[in-house]
Deep mutational scan, measured.
Amino acid sequence: ETFPLDVLVNTAAEDLPRGVDPSRKENFLSDEDFKAVFGMTRSAFANLPLWKQQNLKKEKGLF
């Protein structure tokens, strides 16, 4: 299941849709939104070091 970017960005855990893991908001973006937000594919993002993934998520309001 995916959700629009505005539902996930800068949203407190208690305000997220049911079933969304607040530590993994990026997994609930569509592939198109994911690429638009991070400028890379999911596989490229997954290959980044964890610290870099976290920094990007913070920068984009998805942490």
Rank of each mutant, 00 (worst) to 15 (best):
F63Q: 15
N27F: 09
D33L: 05
V7K: 11
A44P: 00
K57N: 02
N47T: 12
D21F: 04
F28D: 04
N47R: 12
M40T: 01
L48K: 13
G19V: 12
F38L: 07
T2H: 11
L56S: 01
L8C: 06
D15F: 10
F3L: 13
A13K: 10
A13N: 15
D21H: 07
L16A: 04
R24H: 15
N55E: 15
K60D: 01
L29T: 01
A44D: 14
K58T: 08
K35R: 13
D31Q: 05
F28G: 04
R42V: 03
D6N: 13
V37T: 10
G19E: 09
L56V: 03
N27R: 11
L29Q: 01
P22K: 05
N55H: 13
L62N: 03
F38G: 00
G39K: 07
K52N: 07
T2P: 05
F63Y: 14
K52W: 10
L50M: 12
A36L: 13
A36H: 12
K52A: 12
E26A: 03
D15Q: 11
R18C: 15
T41Q: 06
V7W: 12
T11A: 12
G39A: 08
L8F: 02
P17T: 05
D31T: 05
T11V: 14
Q53S: 01
D21Q: 06
K60N: 11
L56D: 01
D6E: 14
K58M: 11
N55V: 13
P49V: 01
L62Y: 10
V20Q: 05
G39T: 02
P49D: 07
V20P: 04
R42C: 03
N47I: 11
R18P: 15
L48Q: 02
S30G: 05
T2G: 08
E26G: 03
Q53V: 01
A36F: 13
K25S: 05
D31W: 02
P4D: 07
L29E: 02
K35I: 14
A12I: 09
A12Y: 06
D6K: 09
R24W: 08
V7D: 07
L48I: 03
F3D: 04
K52G: 05
A46N: 13
L16Y: 14
P22H: 08
P17F: 02
P17N: 05
A12P: 14
K60V: 13
R42H: 04
N10D: 09
Q54H: 10
Q53L: 01
V7I: 12
L5A: 06
F34W: 02
L16K: 03
W51D: 11
V37P: 00
M40S: 01
G19R: 07
E26P: 03
D21L: 05
T11R: 11
S23V: 10
G39I: 01
R18N: 13
E14Q: 14
P49M: 01
L16I: 06
F38V: 01
R24M: 11
T2Y: 15
L62A: 04
P49Y: 01
N27E: 14
P17L: 05
F3Q: 06
A36Y: 12
R24I: 07
K35E: 15
F34Y: 02
D21P: 03
E26N: 03
N55D: 14
R18G: 10
E32C: 07
F38E: 00
D31S: 05
P22C: 08
Q54V: 14
S23A: 14
F63W: 13
E1H: 13
S43A: 14
V37E: 02
G61C: 09
R24Y: 12
P17A: 05
P4S: 06
N55S: 14
D21C: 09
N27P: 03
A46Q: 12
M40Q: 01
K58E: 12
A12M: 10
P49H: 02
K60M: 06
D33N: 04
K25H: 05
L8P: 05
V37Y: 03
F34S: 00
P17Y: 02
L56T: 02
V20M: 06
V20L: 08
F45Q: 00
V9F: 06
K35P: 01
S30E: 02
V7A: 08
A46W: 08
R18D: 13
Q54Y: 12
S30Y: 02
L5C: 09
W51G: 08
W51T: 09
Q54W: 11
R42M: 05
K25T: 11
R24N: 10
T11Q: 09
E14S: 12
W51A: 09
K58H: 09
F34R: 00
L8I: 07
T41V: 07
K57E: 05
E1F: 13
Q53T: 01
L62F: 13
A12D: 10
N55M: 14
R42I: 04
P49W: 00
L56A: 04
S23N: 14
L5F: 10
R24E: 06
W51P: 07
V9Q: 15
V37G: 00
Q54K: 11
L29W: 03
K52R: 12
D33A: 07
P49S: 05
F45W: 06
G61I: 02
E32H: 10
R24L: 09
F45E: 00
D33Q: 06
P22D: 06
N27K: 15
F3T: 04
S23C: 15
A12G: 09
W51H: 10
D6Y: 10
K35Q: 14
G19K: 08
L62G: 05
G19N: 10
S43M: 14
F34T: 00
K58D: 07
A13E: 14
L16W: 07
F38S: 00
T11Y: 06
L5H: 06
E32M: 09
N27L: 13
S23M: 15
N10H: 10
S30M: 02
E59R: 08
L50D: 09
L62T: 02
R24S: 09
V20Y: 05
S23W: 11
D15L: 15
T2K: 11
D6M: 08
G39Y: 02
F45I: 00
S43P: 09
P17R: 04
R18Q: 13
Q54A: 13
N10F: 04
L5R: 06
L16T: 06
K52Q: 14
A13C: 15
R42A: 04
L8K: 04
E32V: 09
S43H: 14
P49R: 01
F28S: 12
F28Y: 15
V9P: 04
L29H: 01
L56C: 04
G19C: 11
R42W: 02
S30K: 03
E32G: 11
L5Q: 05
E32F: 09
S23Q: 14
T41M: 07
A36N: 12
R24Q: 10
G39W: 01
E59W: 06
R24F: 14
A36D: 11
T41C: 08
T11I: 11
P4W: 03
S30R: 05
L50C: 14
N27T: 10
V20A: 05
E1P: 15
Q53K: 06
E26K: 02
A12W: 06
A46L: 12
F28T: 04
L8D: 03
N10R: 11
L16H: 05
N47V: 11
T11P: 06
P49K: 01
K60H: 12
G61R: 02
K60R: 07
E1K: 13
N55Y: 13
L8N: 05
A44E: 15
Q54R: 11
F38W: 01
T41F: 02
R18V: 14
K52D: 13
F63T: 14
D21K: 03
V9C: 10
D21G: 03
A44S: 10
D15I: 07
G39M: 07
P17D: 04
S23R: 12
N55I: 13
L16P: 05
K58W: 11
A44T: 09
G19I: 11
A36V: 12
K25L: 15
F3E: 04
M40D: 00
A44G: 06
P17E: 05
F28V: 04
D31E: 11
K52C: 13
T2C: 10
S30P: 02
V9G: 05
E26H: 03
E59P: 01
D6W: 13
E59H: 07
G19S: 11
V9K: 11
F34Q: 00
F38N: 00
G39N: 14
T11G: 13
F63S: 15
D6L: 09
M40I: 07
N55F: 11
F63D: 15
P49I: 02
N10V: 07
K58P: 00
N27I: 10
V37N: 02
F45M: 01
V20D: 04
F38A: 00
A13I: 14
S43F: 12
D21V: 06
L5P: 07
A46I: 10
A13G: 10
D6Q: 09
L16D: 04
Q53E: 00
K52F: 13
L16R: 03
D33E: 09
N27D: 15
D21M: 05
P4K: 02
L8Y: 02
E14Y: 01
L48P: 00
L56G: 00
L56W: 01
V9D: 05
R18F: 13
S43V: 13
Q53H: 00
G61E: 03
D15T: 08
A36P: 00
W51L: 09
